[in-house]
Amino acid sequence: MIHSLRMGNDSKAMQKIPDWNTYLLKVGTSQDKAAFGALFEYFSPRLKTFLMQGSNLSAENAEELVQEAMTKVWRRAPSFAPTQASASTWIYTIARNTRIDWFRKNSRQDPLLFHAEDLYGDNEEASPYSTLAQLRSTVSIHEQLNELPQEQSEVLNIMYFKGLSGQQTAEALAIPLGTVKSRIRLALKKLRVGLAVTGGNSGQGTNND
């Protein structure tokens, strides 16, 4: 189950990335401001890039969102569970949810009836299922992402980093939506993201666990 790919690049990657899980746990358990400062120094400039690229945000707006996201990181740190998500993944979901709400707030008149975290939270914070998935850490998924054919990783990069839907990705690359769908399917297979068997019999296997 654990990655068997070459380790050359990744031993470097591992050295470069400190154990942010530990830092985040320290913030959560003892409101450790030094640990938070280290997390801030690493994640804030990356979140800023992510938010600016993914949403055509101005640098100023992106900083507002970074501030909001990092404030949430502090407040939510007590609920961080490294068995469910790595620090990077956990912070990613907070930034993504912050971005979603920002766009919803700015595209409508009436108040938000709920926040993105209310919708996503149930799965991402309380899922009893995610431990297995988490064994495949971001480091191992990074190796596998590097192994993907360029046309497949490109689609995923655009969707995550530029924040485009599948249809928008197809438009941006000037390829049919069906091609985007098949690249996603092939990429997920290579990344060993277990997908439910589609079609098939009346067995309902995946739902009856």
């Binding site: 990356r46 995923l156 995550y160």
Partner: peptide
């Protein structure tokens, strides 16, 4: 209600986490 898709989604979120790790740093 679907463990398979919930697990797949957790794995996919790791892609987002990786994108953050790999993102260039824009000074704040």
């Amino acid at each position: 209600l679907c463990r398979t898709c919930a697990d797949a989604t957790s794995s996919l979120n790791n892609l987002g986490g990786d994108m953050i790790d790999q993102a260039e740093a824009t000074p704040v």
